[in-house]
Design a protein around this nucleic acid. Structure first.
Lengths: 211, 211
DNA sequence: GAAATATTTAATAGATCTATTAATTTCATG
DNA sequence: CATGAAATTAATAGATCTATTAAATATTTC
């Protein structure tokens, strides 16, 4: 029925939407086919198993998610500015794909096998990102511009602040009865809030601060 | 087989463990019964449907999770100290029940019906917590001790930092090959880190800070 | 200890789901 | 337009899952 989109692509797109909406377990190949209006065997004709279909989608999404950080590093820009830009890019990326973090957590936590599978696949990407950050960060620390801190800690803080907002978003919007416009404002406000929180967290320690 | 625990309790405990491990959809009443070693019909004898069993557990867990905040508020303690203690209590609570946040997100996001169901049930609790915080926070702002900020923003930041660590924990531990002892140290470190991040984020704005 | 009640099991209906196979249709190409 | 390949469907085997019912067993109570 849908105009002229190749069936294989149609299946991927539909599966993508349903997997993101309801997770792997609660989405059936039957439902994917029904949604498209094609025979259920066709899903298996193109992808053989539901797991393979899922993995193809999952891998693509994760790469799309990590990719933008590979070539983010610029040497000619002050650290604080670089960091601000990185936090905002990360934030915008999640904003554009708000359901990926949940899919990620969902599959990693409920299916240890998949976790092992993707641990090997994806371990280089985060490592290269971390390595790039590491040098600059330690230099700043050595100069006394920011407090001693591991790249890992910094990344966890950024990730936590950016990701959780979007995992909570549906509940927040419904719970507080926010219009789409209001929600959009809330989100943009949180972006600058997160930048402020992170930048402040890096400042050199002052007397008596750590308890 | 298990010594002298009433069957109903045994079912709840087993279901609890499995639901937390694998979520609602991927846990079957058949599996719960098999785990215990009893007949599968017994699960339905006590709880009629899988959904009712789940809801009983879910509700209990959420209450356990929000409860500690009800009577947290003390008037005789400086705001910063109060806040530190609240962040740490929240953190420890998640540490003691690290899988609840995921269960919460999982069910809220994949099952809109359940979301509606619990929205009504749980809306008073967060509201009362928020209300308690609100007064003190606004007073501090009026006095110029902290920057203008909504209670909502503060709560989101605390929640984000505290929760995400534990959602990531299994991946972090496996990905970096950390021993239980090392993981424990990492967690405790993050607790003080989160306190520091939040407290710093509240300080009054300085010249030119918000871009 | 017998009757009544509660718990547990066996059996199964009815749904649904994954994956396969064989048959059918569509389509490109000589 | 005939033929072979590709795409699609129909049909179905085999698993599993939820929920119910009736029968069997255990427990309480008189």
């Amino acid at each position: 029925m849908p105009q002229d989109i190749p069936m294989e692509q149609l299946i991927v797109e539909t599966a993508e939407r349903l997997f993101l909406e309801k997770g792997f377990a609660m989405t059936s190949t039957t439902e994917i086919a029904k949604e498209i209006g094609c025979n259920q065997a066709l899903v298996h004709y193109y992808f053989r198993t539901k797991a393979k279909l899922f993995e193809a989608i999952f891998e693509k999404k994760i790469k799309l998610f990590i990719g933008p950080f590979i070539d983010l590093y610029r040497d000619d820009v002050p650290f604080e500015e670089y960091l601000r830009s990185m936090i905002e890019k990360h934030f915008d990326l999640i904003k554009a794909n708000p359901k990926i973090p949940f899919l990620f957590f969902n599959e990693m936590l409920t299916n240890p096998a998949r976790m092992e599978y993707f641990r090997t696949k994806l371990s280089e990407l985060p490592r290269s990102v971390l390595a790039k950050m590491e040098g600059k960060l330690q230099a700043e620390i050595a100069q006394g511009h920011i407090r001693p801190l591991s790249t890992f800690d910094l990344m966890i803080s950024i990730f936590s602040l950016n990701v959780t907002l979007f995992m909570m978003a549906p509940m927040v919007q419904q719970g507080f009865n926010l219009s789409d416009r209001e929600m959009e404002q809330l989100i943009e406000h949180r972006k600058s809030e997160n930048v402020l929180i992170i930048l402040r967290s890096l400042r050199p320690l002052i007397e008596n601060e750590n308890h």
